[in-house]
Design a protein around this nucleic acid. Structure first.
Length: 406
RNA sequence: GGGCAGAUGCCGGAGCGGUUAAUCGGAACAGACUGUAAAUCUGUCGCACUCAGUGCUACAAAGGUUCGAAUCCUUUUCUGCCCA
């Protein structure tokens, strides 16, 4: 079974421009493919993770990845699938984000000689001359076609600025540029990128007569049809400072029953034969699958050691032992001699946004400190408790340790 | 450039002079039930406090009319639609 068949079996392939050609290329390690990442935040998140995994799989099969960081397109903002305009980022932010991306990606992709390269489209986009560009690629784009593109449809009703309209042209130009410079012959991307990617293959064909291919990855949606990787706090990040390994683990530990198998297939590197075997498991083993999923992913992103810790912590906490070491924690300073009020403490630990919210949680019986249910919002947590690390439990499954600083 | 319509809480969307911190739906959070799942039921869902109460800040922004404005008027900003 070739890599193409494996991707297909894992449900990762959404659309392809030419199945036969693509199959041949990637199964024989002949693809030099690129995936673009827009630096819209200071960390990669779960959405990018899919793309990274795909890259890794293809790299393992002998294909050469080109990681493109959108330092230039970041100035524009991709309107695909969005109903509102992106906020404009400053050049400094864009650059800082690009740098962070690079560090995170090095965990996954081997950037050794002749293995993979990383480029930043700022290097060629920022120096473009408007008139030259127009004369160069302008004639090859049909506005009529562009307006019909799915990715602009939504925005046609809500309003689409010329700035964002040009995103497609920039992305197509990227592909064209990479094709010329690095013999890049394929592009991968999220399913929402389909029209942008097609624009690229067409531009290459029109300008050079060469064939180039595009393939999209299925977006990871949960059983409700929403993008996965979002929590109440926002995205699930790959940066341990933004989403701790424990929280990351918990996110996957808590996926819907209906989504477990899909996630195992699409996100992990567990051999398909084992996954097929798991499919046959009795329903009573569903939690085993979830634990496995969480462990595998945490291990991929944060390393085996962190995965081990997160898994141990979770096991301990949920079996009632509160002594676990690795739960998320906050260092508290400025504590008066007689202690700190539970309301302030919860805010300090980010467990509540306001005192009102904290009070509410307590009145509803949702807060526990060191295994004792808090009944009064006036409760004081003493310095002694904080010294050893007071464990606050919010709701059924949010554990947090508050430790005295110093 | 001209005409028309609109801007309400996380999102959608009511309200069109007082009884409105703002109907309703979704999301979210807590409780019950469970398997750290889903579904269901209950409660909560602007901020603060001495919290069954009180105060403050809010309906794009700024002014104004009024005893009283999210609701009326003026200007500004933004958005959609139509005409050029």
């Amino acid at each position: 079974m070739g890599i193409y068949e494996e991707l297909q079996a894992r449900g990762l392939i959404a659309q392809v421009t030419d199945e036969e050609e693509i199959r041949n290329l990637i199964n024989n390690g002949g693809a030099r493919f690129y995936i673009g990442f827009d630096p819209t935040a200071d960390s990669l998140h779960v959405g990018h993770f899919m793309a990274l995994c795909l890259m890794k799989r293809l790299q393992m099969a002998g294909n050469k990845p080109v990681v493109l960081v959108g330092g230039g397109t970041g100035y524009i903002g991709d309107p695909s699938g969005r109903t509102d305009m992106r906020t404009m980022m400053t050049p400094e932010t864009i650059q800082a984000n690009c740098d962070k991306f690079k560090v995170q990606m090095e965990r996954f992709i081997d950037f050794g000689p002749d293995k993979a390269i990383m480029v930043n489209n700022a290097d060629w986009l920022l120096g473009l001359n408007y008139i030259e560009l127009l004369r160069d690629v302008g004639p090859h784009f049909s506005v009529n076609t562009m307006l019909r593109a799915e990715c602009y449809k939504q925005r046609m009703e809500k309003g689409l600025s010329f700035l964002e309209f040009n995103y497609m042209i920039m992305q197509a130009y990227d592909f064209y540029y990479l094709h010329n410079k690095y013999k890049c012959n394929m592009q991968f991307g999220g399913d929402d990128q389909w029209s942008n990617m097609l624009a690229g293959t067409e531009l290459i064909r029109k300008k050079t007569g060469d064939d180039a291919y595009a393939m999209t990855i299925t977006l990871l949606l949960n059983s409700e049809g929403k993008k996965m990787g979002k929590t109440a706090k926002g995205a699930v990040w790959l940066d341990p400072k933004k989403t701790s390994p424990y929280e990351f683990y918990q996110y996957w530990r808590n996926v819907d029953d209906a989504d477990v198998m899909k996630c195992l297939r699409m996100l992990t590197f567990i051999p398909l034969s084992e996954i097929d075997e798991m499919e046959k498991w009795d329903d009573s083993r569903i939690n085993e699958k979830k634990a496995l999923l969480a462990y595998e992913l945490t291990s991929l992103v944060h390393g085996k050691e962190e995965a081990e810790k997160a898994s141990e912590t979770a096991k301990a906490l949920f079996s009632g032992k509160v002594s676990a070491e690795n739960m998320p924690s906050t260092e508290i300073d400025n504590v008066a001699d007689d202690g700190i009020g539970i309301l302030d403490l919860m805010i300090a630990c980010n467990l509540a946004k306001s005192k009102n919210e904290a009070r509410r949680l307590i009145l509803q019986g949702g807060v526990t400190v060191d295994e004792e249910k808090v009944t009064e919002p006036t409760l004081i947590v003493t310095k002694a408790q904080l010294q050893t690390g007071a464990v606050i439990k919010k709701g059924q499954k949010v554990f947090h340790r508050a430790i005295l600083k110093g």
